[in-house]
């Protein structure tokens, strides 16, 4: 599409912001009216309990994650459009391994939850981060982040080296994944065609419009990728919760091998934020061995059912399968090591 034509078209759009705004407000009003007219109270709309709980659990994942995803998108917009060019990336060390190590610490500065990190990592990749580096950031940031470290410390103190194993293990696994994928001959093949296209055209638009308009455009792009993934991920998480009995998992608590695998499965299923997962698993602390808790605290922030849905916006299914297996194996080894060594 020739540039001149586009600009003319855009100008046409720009003349009618009031109309667009009115349409937007009308949609908001319609949605509020739908909510207003819908049945109130906790009668449950005649649904069976399991269906009600499926809805409640899925909705709670959406309501909990939504603000974090918005925060991630806003930060991603800030990094791509508002921060001076290269403020973050150009100051990174040249050496690839050091670069990844520094990137794994980026969560210290930008303490977003793992679901918010996905749009942020997308933004960083558009700005020139390699695929391997973005993976290192994605997997390290939810663990190496001040809120997660503080809550883990509050929950477990210094007992059983759970905190140390989480921090060191998370750092090591994220950098291992980064190192392995940095050897990939064609890293672009790990990305979905749609995201590759978004990366390829990102530069074309630079400077053509005002920053505010570009921010809004990016918001539309990122929500169109993230929101379907979030809603589908939430529905899956709710469905698994209703279908899989937690007692079965907890019955495996005291075996050094099975406890590790059971808690990793629980982490995958429960899809809870890394900022508070320590408090959650603390309530099982007496039942499970420390290595299992470490495996939960390391595996959960990196891979779970909601994260896979969100990551699928960016990475191919094959790449996600590989990386999930790699992370799961590493987390299991870490958990078993804690169980048998300490």
């Amino acid at each position: 599409m020739p540039g001149g034509q586009r600009t003319g078209q855009d100008r046409g759009q720009w003349r009618r912001p009031a109309t667009g705004l009115l349409i937007g407000l009308a949609v908001v009003a319609v949605l509020f009216v739908v909510r207003w007219l819908s049945p109130q109270g906790s009668a449950g709309a005649g649904l069976p309990n399991a269906a009600r709980d499926f809805a409640t659990l899925s909705i709670s994942v959406v309501i909990e994650s939504l603000p974090f995803v918005f925060l991630g998108i806003v930060l991603s917009i800030a990094v791509q459009i508002w921060l001076p060019e290269g403020l973050l990336l150009r100051r990174l060390p040249r050496n690839a391994m050091l670069r990844r190590m520094v990137l794994s610490m980026l969560g210290m500065l930008l303490p977003v939850c793992e679901c918010g990190n996905v749009p942020l990592a997308r933004g960083l990749m558009v700005k020139g981060l390699t695929v391997a580096e973005s993976m290192t950031f994605l997997f390290a940031a939810p663990i190496l982040n001040p809120i997660t470290i503080i809550t883990t410390q509050q929950a477990f103190g210094w007992d059983n080296n759970i905190l140390a194993a989480r921090i060191v293990g998370g750092f090591a696994i994220a950098n291992l994944v980064g190192w392995i994928y940095s050897r990939h001959p064609r890293p672009d093949e790990l990305l979905t065609p749609r995201f590759q296209a978004a990366c390829a055209v990102a530069d074309h638009h630079d400077g053509r419009r005002g920053r505010a308009a570009r921010s809004v455009r990016m918001f539309v792009q990122e929500t169109s990728a993230m929101m379907p993934a979030l809603f589908i991920g939430a529905a899956l998480a709710g469905l698994i919760q209703v279908a899989v009995s937690r007692e079965v998992l907890l019955a495996l608590g005291s075996d050094p091998v099975w406890s590790v695998l059971a808690l990793m499965l629980l982490a995958f299923v429960v899809a809870i934020c890394s900022n508070v997962d320590a408090f959650f698993i603390l309530s099982f602390g007496a039942t499970f061995m420390p290595g299992a808790i470490v495996a939960f605290l390391v595996f959960g922030p990196m891979i779970d059912v909601k994260m896979l849905a969100l990551l699928r916006t960016t990475f191919t299914a094959k790449a996600l399968l590989q990386v999930s297996l790699l992370v799961a194996l590493s987390a299991a080894v870490l958990g078993l090591a804690v169980n048998y060594v300490s």
Partner: peptide, 24 residues
Amino acid sequence: LVLAAFALGSAKVDDHEHDHADTG
């Protein structure tokens, strides 16, 4: 941001990406 998207009619603005995306 959503209302701004409506006001600016961003639907037209990201056509370019969409052309590429559809090859995927």
